[in-house]
Amino acid sequence: MAKVDINTKMITLLGDPLKQSFAAQMQNCGYEAAGLNMIYFYTEVNNEHLADVVNGIRYMNFAGFAVTKPNKVKVLEYLDELDPLCKKMGASNTVVKTPEGKLVGYNTDGIGFIRSMERDGNVKIDENTYFCIGSGGAGRAMCSALAYYGAKKIYITDVFEESSKALVEDINKNFAPVAEFCPAGDFSKVKEATVVLNASGIGMGSHIGENPLPKEFISKDQFYFDACYNPAKTQFLLDAEEAGATILNGLGMSLYQGAAQIEYWTGQEPPIEAMRQKLLDIISEK
């Protein structure tokens, strides 16, 4: 890491808790590889004191800041401008401090997903129909981005039906009338999708070995994406691979969303491969 001096631009991640985050390691690796005099660090803060922290950043040597749970929605109240996608999504994970001192909100979660699907999965977003399992933070970002970039149809389901209903309503109102609610446990619409998404978190952590999609609904003719990347292949992906389908995990989504943040903060092309290798190294050490 470059030596910190008076010209070092700071970036901090605002959220709580943050002990599970890999962001600082990946970002600082990217800064070093790109020769940027920047440093990324963590600030654990929740909604209660978010306004104080954001206001302090305005008067310090920051290029901007990142945002995660539980602050992605609340932070909008303290920003001066919002990117169109960020405004439609109603959440921000990336804030740029302009030379004039304005704080501008963006959301790179969806961008990271779209770039991964296009670059790593060779998926043409506007030519496909999607079935998404999970409507929380990841599912909301993924489905909103799909609608923004022209998805034909998006079926959404969640064990928390109020969540999936709300996401469907928001997409149809703010993006395009392409989303349809599917009751929990109803996978009858999966056969109509060309791409099946797991944004539920089932398959990682305490749910390793579990698949939210019964095997009888899996088809070799579909593309399967899981937002998880640790493990590299969840049971969802293993079952799809066994059926002969094309699969992709969430490593690229995490990578490209972080790379997009660097683009916004610096205006420079991020060192994608150095950042990818850092993520792989981190995972292999776990």
Rank of each mutant, 00 (worst) to 15 (best):
G205L: 07
Y31C: 12
S284F: 01
P177A: 11
A166G: 06
I218Y: 06
D170S: 13
I282G: 03
A34P: 12
A24G: 05
I6M: 03
G35F: 12
R119E: 13
A33W: 07
Y229C: 15
A66K: 01
K215Y: 08
A66D: 12
T108S: 04
T43I: 11
G15R: 03
Q25N: 14
R276F: 04
N198Y: 11
G121A: 13
T129F: 01
Q20K: 09
A199T: 08
I133R: 07
T98L: 05
N55H: 14
I39A: 12
E169I: 02
Q261H: 09
K69G: 00
N71E: 08
N128D: 12
F187H: 06
I272V: 09
K87Q: 15
A184S: 15
Y229P: 14
E77N: 12
M10A: 08
A23Y: 05
E118R: 15
G121P: 15
V123R: 14
G250Q: 02
F62R: 00
K102W: 01
T157Y: 10
D226G: 01
G267Y: 10
E241H: 01
P231H: 01
I171H: 12
A141Y: 00
A240K: 06
S163W: 00
R140K: 14
V168T: 09
L167P: 06
S200W: 04
S135D: 02
F225L: 05
F181I: 05
D52S: 11
R58V: 15
G185E: 05
P271V: 02
A259R: 15
G209N: 14
D221R: 02
D120Y: 04
I218D: 06
V190G: 04
G252P: 03
F41Y: 14
T129N: 13
L146N: 08
V178I: 15
L280M: 07
G250P: 10
Y149N: 11
E162A: 07
L18C: 07
A34H: 10
Y40D: 14
E44A: 15
C86A: 15
S92K: 03
S164A: 07
A245R: 04
D221E: 13
I247G: 05
K220G: 09
Q25M: 12
G267T: 14
C182M: 13
D186A: 05
G90I: 03
Y224L: 00
M10Y: 10
G139P: 05
D16V: 11
K9E: 09
L36V: 10
Y40A: 13
E210R: 09
E269I: 10
M1H: 03
N7C: 03
A243E: 07
S163G: 03
C29H: 10
N46F: 08
I208C: 12
A24L: 06
Y264M: 15
Q20N: 12
I6D: 02
E180R: 13
D83C: 08
F217S: 00
I133A: 10
A24C: 11
L50T: 10
Y42H: 14
S144C: 10
L85P: 09
N55E: 09
I247S: 04
